[in-house]
Write a protein that binds this DNA or RNA. Structure first.
Lengths: 137, 137
DNA sequence: ATATTACATTTGTATTTACAATTGTTGTAG
DNA sequence: CTACAACAATTGTAAATACAAATGTAATAT
């Protein structure tokens, strides 16, 4: 088994999965990355997240995370404050309208995600996550 | 095991692997996608490949494959002819200078690829390829 | 207090990618 | 033969992303 094969199979899987998820988000005029940011912020359960925390959980260059969030702010789904304790940092919150959007989107994304991996059984899912985690560390 | 977890692990793996490969290609002023096209054309062993064939093996929109190849042509690594039998099609060849470039790049990419998956044993590599293939079809 | 360094984010710019529409060519039905 | 559909590739354009440099703030050393 050549390294190349393994790598290509990961790249292709990513591509397919990205296409399907993006397509399911299209009616909501939101990109996959924007959706991910909103999900991360919701995960904070009211606590602010600062930009670098969000950035770490993403797969982006920092500069583009800024602009990604600019867009979410324009759409009123996110609010940005500079942090009182450390004015270099900024605090990010998801707004009520952002939460409402996620409410609308959640189900369709969940269905899409499950459809993507529907052919995998429990063991395979566990296996792939553990192998990939292994690869990433 | 939630679908979301599986999907995120694939996305992250792809991200890491993409970063590492791109970095190793940087000294050669060539992108990963451009490198892939060259590899595909070399794989033809002298036979022409037409654009749609190349496109199918890639993870791009057709329109961008055209432009990707434009760049390789500007760099003289690829040659383009319109197909005599069917003038809608174009034939693509890798040039001698494209082959020389690949000669230079091959080793470093191979090393990078192997380094990326060095923590996986034979069984894991086989497993992951088979699971992902399963997912893609 | 001032200079220096590190930190957190932003800006500028070029390149890449997505999406829609268009061009030119071939096949085919009437 | 002509019209029309299908095919293969390209172009135009907006959005996303990569990369380098700059801004503003805080911490530290002298």
């Amino acid at each position: 088994m050549e390294a190349k094969e393994v790598i290509i199979s990961i790249i292709k899987a990513n591509c397919i999965l990205n296409d399907k998820l993006s397509a399911s988000l299209k009616p909501f005029k939101i990109s996959l990355q924007q959706f991910n940011v909103l999900r991360i912020l919701r995960g904070q359960k009211g606590l602010p997240a600062n930009l670098s925390e969000v950035h770490e959980k993403m797969v982006h260059k920092m500069s583009n995370t800024t602009r990604l969030i600019d867009k979410l702010i324009n759409k009123t789904f996110v609010k940005r404050n500079t942090c009182k304790q450390n004015r270099r940092k900024i605090e990010l919150f998801i707004t009520p309208s952002g939460l409402r959007l996620l409410d609308q989107i959640d189900l369709i994304v969940k269905i899409t995600e499950e459809k993507i991996i529907e052919k995998l059984n429990t063991k395979e899912k566990e296996k792939i996550v553990s192998i990939l985690r292994h690869l990433n560390n």
